[in-house]
Nucleic acid binder design. Sequence first.
DNA 1: AGCCCATCCTGTCCGC
DNA 2: TGCGGACAGGATGGGC
Length: 269
Amino acid sequence: MVLTKKIEGKSVIGSPGHSTDEKRQQVGTFLRNADKSILRELEGRVILGLRRRGKMILIDCAGNRSILIHLKMTGQLFVTSHREPVDKHTRFILRFKSRSRELRFRDIRKFGFIRCLGTSEADGCPELAGLGPEPLDLDFRSFQSLLKGRGGRLKPLLLNQKIIAGIGNIYADEILYRARLDPRARVQSLKVKEVRRLWLAMRRILREAITLRGSSIRDFIDSERKEGEYQDRHLAYGREAEPCPRCGRKIARIRLAGRSTYYCPRCQR
DNA sequence: AGCCCATCCTGTCCGC
DNA sequence: TGCGGACAGGATGGGC
């Protein structure tokens, strides 16, 4: 993406907004979940690089400043023309020195956040410090030991960012479907063969999803405003009552870990 | 430890 | 067409 671009003077701004409702909002209100000091902290700095850790995005800037972003459910982070109209869900704009393009953070439900912190303290900040390992960095043995002694159920384990970082509701379901494992199964009860299937499925599903640039169900777009294509490959998630591609039985939907969970009651056990 | 629930917020969709 | 309720890629904190 945008490397070594200089952030311009008045570059970080709250959206002017177009609706009357928006006009009444103070900038401070509009930058909800964001530290206002980000405005002057970033001015004039050069972007040095981009990182990701679990679901957290980091933009490292010169002078030991980093921007930390979580998109949560409906967040979007994209580069666009400065001419592109700014809608009421846009919460943040980084304008670059070159002026013609800018980075925007849009978030309909406002669950996401963006804040500034010292690059050197980033790894130790609360949002990053507690995260488990990256799923694609885990070899089979490490994965095995990660599961050892856990009494809970499979799906909540996959969703737990402290155990493994980065897996969300869609991919938890897709991974378990591919591994042919019941989302409610006890982690302890898994045989070595099943742990192996889970590990393989995790790697396969995440790699494919990354290649296809993620799943756009409703709001998700990438940094170029492009939708992902992985939603077309979902075999379980969002397919309640549709036939299981493997056995034909209807995909079931249950509530687990507070989330909708789709699985095949025949294949997954 | 682990489970469920409510909560943050806006938008969409479905049944009546 | 309108209205109410359920639900949505996440994560946390409280209570049991």
